[in-house]
Amino acid sequence: MTALPILYSFRRCPYAMRARMALAASAVQVELREVVLRDKPPEMLEASPKGTVPVLVLPDGRVLEESLDIMRWALAQSDSLGWLTHDDQNLILATDGPFKIALDHYKYPHRYGLTDGTVHRDAALAHLAHLNTLLTRSLYLGGARPAFTDIAIFPFIRQFAATDAIWFATLPLPALQSWLSGLVGSDLFASIMARYKQWKVGDAPVHFP
């Protein structure tokens, strides 16, 4: 039997979410190893000493340590949904960079010595408004169907919205809210959010998707 790539993942990590969504869309099967972040397996740390998820270890020994690299690798194997037709790297970098920094300060203010995160929450609104404007032109950022850009950005917008769902629902961002609701409610997202127990050496392999 041919060895499968090994994916170290954590269910609630947004970076791991987007990697799993691309793997599911490509139907490229991997061995999934669910990680508990406070108890990282030595096997993962040996492959990727930086200790963050996701990590994909390929059968030839190559290691992909960045979620966007994992997404692009998976879709290079099979992209039947045409996700790679829309890969807006500038928009993704803006989300992964300034927006993610604001999100972390908003969601976890005490980590940064803040009383609350409202200043950073409000700073993130310009990015959300820009996404909303783009989404008034089409259902998804790349057109009528989700594509790479949507999936790369989506988990972070979901995390922002969930921090105060009642407040988020009051924002005048109907196109963005509809986009988010559709992705959260999609069969694809449901399929990648199954719960798995923490992986331990000797466990039977868990195949994903």
Rank of each mutant, 00 (worst) to 15 (best):
D187V: 10
D87L: 11
P155T: 09
Q198Y: 07
L93F: 10
R62E: 15
D203S: 07
V119H: 12
A190K: 14
H120M: 12
S186N: 10
Y196F: 10
L56D: 05
F156E: 05
R18N: 06
L139Y: 11
A22S: 12
R121L: 03
A74F: 02
R11M: 10
L93A: 15
V55P: 13
D122L: 10
H86S: 04
F148W: 03
M1Y: 11
D88W: 03
E65W: 04
Y112D: 04
P54T: 09
K107C: 00
F168R: 05
D79G: 03
D187P: 08
G82K: 00
M17E: 14
V119N: 11
E66I: 02
L45F: 00
Y15P: 07
Q177R: 05
D150N: 05
S9N: 08
F160Q: 12
L75Y: 02
Q198C: 11
D69S: 05
S138C: 07
P41L: 04
L188S: 07
R111C: 09
S178P: 05
F156T: 05
S138K: 08
L75K: 02
R62Q: 15
L32I: 00
P174V: 02
G61H: 01
P209K: 09
L23E: 06
V36D: 14
W179G: 00
A194W: 07
W167S: 14
S78I: 04
L139N: 11
D69L: 00
L84P: 11
F148I: 10
L58G: 03
S48K: 05
A19S: 08
G97A: 00
A24H: 15
M44H: 11
R38Y: 13
P5L: 00
Y140I: 02
L93V: 11
Q198N: 12
P205W: 01
L125I: 12
V184S: 15
L23K: 06
M71L: 02
F10P: 09
M44K: 12
A94K: 13
A190V: 07
D69R: 05
T133R: 13
G82I: 00
T85K: 14
T149E: 02
A76F: 04
